[in-house]
Design a binder for these strands. Structure first.
Length: 647
RNA sequence: GCUGACGUAGCUCAAUUGGCAGAGCAGCUGAUUUGUAAUCAGCAGGUUAGGGGUUCGAUUCCCCUCGUCAGCUCCA
């Protein structure tokens, strides 16, 4: 405690630098009231020397303080954590025997785990939500009590999970209990002042969750919810969920006929003709980038004897994720489908001698990989068992790292920009568990960082998050609705060359170990497809669209003209179809919009006579434009060539 | 893998307490020849995911298998 005596006033410094004096033991609320009654009404908590505290907790010493209201970023956390308590309060009233686990605030909401005899049903959730409204109505204060261990154990005698947590608390830790009405919870706090402050929330779903995420422990029933300060924020969030559902790649993949799954091949997609076209277009683009970088594209075997996996270390650490294959001659499962490309590339590199003159040497491969994910981990194209990566391994001398990393970074950012994706960079440095000398890490991190700085892009530092064999740069991409995906990665590897005994002959005519860079840009094509589908909501830019132009003759009289136009477009490398079905023009226009075709070229008698077309741009409605056929073909070809994002 | 929910025509969904499996869209056939988001009529479409059980009778109730979906420590 500070040396202040009971008679000396507290000196509280506000964010604007002004100082207020209040009697010792005054609460945050008293401070807020002394500033203004409006602020006192808005106050949710108080920040004392940077730490959040309950509004009604006495201030003990001079400090820098700030009143926290809805407008502070931390306030949402507070709101959601308190909402979790209110949820538990309601559950306890409806299910008196329910034992409680943890109930934190999370991104966009909160959850609470309960140990109950049976899982919650959707009807339960409705009832619980109603009960929560009652609890809010009763406007209980959240009160904080400091208790000793014995008291805590007594209070939670019926809640073994809480007792377990209490037992873990150190003797020097303050144990606090928060109470709102009939409910009390072991909790560090802080909370909003009263349940009445919780107004705009919704329970979303319930699902099982292992106690502490440990599959060996009992399964609890978790209820997820979301909470916001304003009704329109809650509505906007729920609307966002709806929108995200609408652009769910699984739904669009079916509606736009891009890919499918069959029960006989769980976790392995079938691509339709349209989906295959997209994969090919993306492939071609990555190929072009690889070629420009001077990387070689190679194809390597899919199936290997375990000898390879023993060298790579997969056999020991990764075997459960590999699809083992029975060798009928030996009767043993001595073969495995490859889960990664690196061992193949290392093997290939090692089959011949390399001069320092040929470094850096890059191998790129689009081969199919298999990883045996547990069934519960599968979902759509983002979590699959079979996939392809835009994988590349570059073998180089350590003196070449900075230049090469810079080159790769530019390449990756260019790729993202082409799809209208923006990336943030993360620089991950040496982890606790690692191989190699500190000097090596110093050098590697310095090189990576220099390369990173050279891009001029801001980056986030993630100390200790590197791979055990080297530091890395991760690329997080934000899509059009703000979701983040980790896509690209550049990893320095100082271990593989040793394991595979890879060498190059240096200028000094002796053998040296190369450094290896693992590079992925799009990551897996499957996941990248999913991200693109959701990013564009299925309305792909022309160059990526499976069907780029649909030619629509108005009536039978123009069918031949339409076909001739399509033929000319096809000649210019355009993916085009003629919709001469026996349907009304309106029907076919609508169909084109539903299928999100970038351009519809309508050909009536006027257009047929003049060798023109009436262009309808996707989403632009009736706003159409008459184009001479030649001009239109040139325009489409140009968009294709430049990979234009918008028409 | 575990917990829960779900699985009905190609797609989206119906089908009282267990009582003859339906509709819209898509498909096919015909009529219609269309000027910018659904023309009309007819036809066809199913071992209700698969298997077993209870029952006079199962889409419905029970069990098993397969698959799909949600979730499985962003730190009391």
């Amino acid at each position: 405690m500070s040396g202040s005596t009971a008679l000396q006033p507290l000196r509280l410094t506000l964010p604007d630098g002004s100082v207020r004096e209040l009697p010792p033991g005054s609460t945050g609320r008293a401070l807020a009231e002394s500033i203004g009654s409006g602020l006192a009404r808005a106050a949710l908590a108080v920040k004392v020397d940077g730490q959040l505290r309950d509004l009604d907790r006495p201030l003990e010493s001079d400090a820098a303080v700030a009143i926290v209201t809805e407008r502070d970023p931390e306030a949402l956390d507070l709101l959601r954590h308190s909402s979790a308590h209110m949820l538990a309060t309601a559950v306890r009233e409806l299910f008196p025997g329910a034992r409680i686990g943890f109930g934190p605030s999370i991104e966009d909401g909160f959850y609470y785990d309960f140990e109950v005899p049976r899982p919650f049903t959707p009807e339960d959730l409705e009832a619980i939500e109603k009960k929560m409204a009652e609890v809010a109505e009763r406007d209980y204060p959240f009160t904080r009590d400091v208790v000793d261990r014995a008291d805590a154990n007594r209070r939670f005698a019926d809640d073994p999970l809480k007792l377990e947590r209490i037992a873990e608390l150190g003797d020097d830790e303050t144990i606090t209990v928060y109470t709102d009405g009939p409910f009390q919870d072991l909790c560090r706090g802080p909370h909003v002042p009263r349940t009445g402050r919780l107004k705009h929330y919704k329970l979303l779903n319930a699902a099982g969750a292992y106690w502490r995420g440990d599959e060996r422990r009992q399964m609890l029933q978790r209820i997820y919810g979301t909470a916001w300060f304003k009704k329109d924020e809650l509505d906007a969030y729920l609307h966002r969920l709806e929108e995200a559902k609408k652009r769910d790649h699984r739904r669009l993949g079916r509606e736009l006929d891009l890919f499918m799954f069959h029960p006989f091949a769980p976790g392995a997609p079938f691509y339709t003709d349209r989906g295959t076209t997209m994969v090919r277009v993306i492939n071609d683009y990555v190929r072009e980038l690889n070629q420009r970088a001077g990387y070689q594209e190679i194809k390597t075997p899919l199936l290997y004897n375990k000898g390879l996996w023993e060298i790579s270390g997969h056999w020991g650490k990764y075997r459960e994720h590999m699809f083992l294959v029975l060798d009928s001659e030996t009767g043993e499962h001595d073969f495995s489908l490859k889960p990664m490309n690196c061992p193949s590339h290392h093997l290939y590199f090692g089959t011949r001698k390399h001069s320092y003159r040929e470094l850096p040497t890059g191998y790129a491969t689009f081969d199919v990989l298999h990883r045996n994910e547990v069934s519960g981990a599968l979902g759509g194209l983002t979590r699959v068992r079979q996939f392809q990566q835009d994988d590349c391994h570059v073998y180089l001398m350590s003196s070449q790292i900075a230049t090469e990393v810079r080159r790769i970074t530019d390449m990756i950012l260019e790729l993202y920009a082409t799809f209208g994706l923006t990336a943030t960079l993360k620089f991950a440095t040496r982890p606790e568990q690692r191989i190699g000398e500190d000097a090596m890490w110093d050098r590697a991190e310095a090189d990576l960082r220099a390369a990173l700085e050279a891009t001029g892009k801001p980056y986030e530092l993630k100390p200790g998050d590197g791979a055990f064999y080297g530091p890395k740069i991760d690329f997080d991409v934000s899509d059009s609705i703000g979701r983040k995906w980790q896509l690209g990665t550049i990893q320095l590897d100082y271990a593989a060359a040793d394991r595979f005994d890879l060498t190059y002959v240096g200028e000094d005519n002796t053998e040296h170990r190369p450094v290896i860079i693992h590079r992925a840009m799009a990551g897996s094509f499957e996941r990248f497809m999913a991200i693109l589908i959701e990013h564009f909501a299925g309305a792909f830019p022309l160059w990526l669209a499976p069907e780029q132009v649909r030619v629509i003759p108005i009536s039978d009289g123009q069918t031949d003209a339409a076909r001739r136009l399509a033929e000319r477009l096809r000649g210019a490398g355009v993916r085009v179809h003629v919709d001469d079905r026996n349907e009304t023009l309106n029907y076919r226009i609508r169909d084109g919009e539903v299928w999100k075709i970038p351009y519809m070229a309508v050909v009536g008698q006027r257009e047929a006579d003049a060798d023109t077309l009436a262009l309808r741009v996707r989403g632009a409605g009736r706003k159409q434009e008459i184009f001479p056929a030649g001009e239109f073909i040139a325009r489409v070809a140009e968009e294709n060539r430049t990979r234009a994002l918008v028409p």
